[in-house]
Amino acid sequence: MTEKDYGAIFLEELIRVAPDIEAADVSPEDHIQDDLELDSMDVLNLVTALHERLGIDIPEKDYPEISTPARAAAYLERAV
């Protein structure tokens, strides 16, 4: 999978955790907490979903690495 594929998966899981966000409104540079208003419970649910789907266990200290869809895509590709 390419970085782009990981970006698409991240966005899919993001929308599943926060069904009130429109995928079309999310830009790669949006901060998931500051711009998209995810709270800490949403972030944990997102990390849980990514773990279940990709088998990638993102430790708490790496949460800043997934703070935007663009950063997350790069991180997930590296983490495989």
Binding site: S40, M41, L44, H51, D57, I58, E60
Partner: peptide, 17 residues
Amino acid sequence: LEARNATLSPDRRMLLG
């Protein structure tokens, strides 16, 4: 929480809340 969560998969992590 940091020490506890570092050893656990995301589905079992705990929040300060």
